[in-house]
Computed example of a mutant assay.
Amino acid sequence: MNTLKWLESWFMQNCDGEWEHNNGIKVLTLDNPGWLIEIDLEGTDCEEKFFKDFRVENSDEDWIYCKVRDNKFLGYGSVNNLTDILEVFKKWVK
């Protein structure tokens, strides 16, 4: 299953009639340019799961930084690394 289909499935598994009204997934752009992924973990199986900050800095055009803060998975990355950010989340969840 590709990463985007997996994320759709993960989101659907957490929709219970309430969670999706106050929580969810945000995909935003950064001005450097790049991406910000914010995934609410409250009420999911990942809510209390440990995540070690993850950083890859290959170049100014190839980097990602992922962390969990305040019950949110936060992934930042350069313009060509959106899938890589989602892969970090997917591997952590599994």
Rank of each mutant, 00 (worst) to 15 (best):
19 W>T: 09
19 W>E: 01
81 N>Q: 12
39 I>E: 03
37 I>D: 08
12 M>A: 14
40 D>K: 05
25 I>Y: 15
14 N>H: 15
78 S>V: 07
10 W>I: 06
3 T>D: 01
74 L>W: 09
42 E>S: 13
48 E>V: 12
47 E>K: 15
25 I>C: 11
11 F>P: 00
2 N>P: 11
63 W>E: 04
72 K>W: 07
81 N>E: 02
30 L>N: 04
29 T>D: 00
65 Y>L: 08
13 Q>E: 12
59 S>G: 10
31 D>K: 12
14 N>Y: 14
64 I>P: 10
9 S>F: 05
40 D>Q: 04
83 T>K: 12
25 I>V: 15
62 D>Q: 08
70 D>F: 07
51 F>K: 05
52 K>C: 13
16 D>C: 13
35 W>V: 04
11 F>M: 00
24 G>T: 10
40 D>G: 10
29 T>C: 05
76 Y>Q: 04
82 L>A: 10
47 E>S: 09
20 E>M: 04
8 E>F: 05
15 C>D: 00
76 Y>L: 05
75 G>M: 10
31 D>M: 08
81 N>W: 04
46 C>H: 10
86 L>Q: 01
60 D>T: 07
94 K>P: 08
89 F>D: 00
42 E>L: 14
35 W>C: 01
81 N>I: 02
42 E>W: 11
44 T>E: 04
37 I>H: 04
30 L>Q: 09
91 K>P: 01
57 E>L: 14
71 N>K: 15
4 L>P: 00
22 N>Q: 09
86 L>N: 02
49 K>I: 04
51 F>I: 02
39 I>W: 03
15 C>R: 11
14 N>I: 11
29 T>Q: 08
76 Y>C: 01
6 W>A: 07
36 L>P: 02
69 R>L: 12
5 K>L: 05
67 K>H: 06
15 C>S: 09
67 K>G: 01
82 L>E: 02
62 D>T: 07
20 E>D: 03
17 G>C: 11
73 F>H: 06
8 E>A: 06
81 N>C: 13
77 G>N: 02
9 S>G: 01
77 G>Q: 03
83 T>I: 13
67 K>L: 11
94 K>V: 07
93 V>M: 04
4 L>C: 03
43 G>E: 04
15 C>N: 08
42 E>P: 00
30 L>S: 05
14 N>Q: 14
31 D>C: 02
90 K>Y: 10
12 M>Y: 08
74 L>S: 02
8 E>P: 00
79 V>S: 12
65 Y>F: 13
82 L>H: 06
89 F>P: 06
93 V>H: 08
40 D>E: 07
68 V>D: 03
91 K>T: 12
20 E>H: 11
55 R>G: 02
55 R>T: 10
20 E>Y: 02
70 D>V: 06
71 N>F: 15
43 G>R: 06
58 N>G: 15
33 P>W: 11
16 D>F: 09
20 E>L: 04
36 L>E: 12
32 N>M: 10
54 F>G: 02
34 G>D: 09
93 V>F: 04
24 G>Q: 09
21 H>K: 15
8 E>L: 05
56 V>E: 15
91 K>A: 09
30 L>I: 01
51 F>G: 00
34 G>K: 03
38 E>D: 14
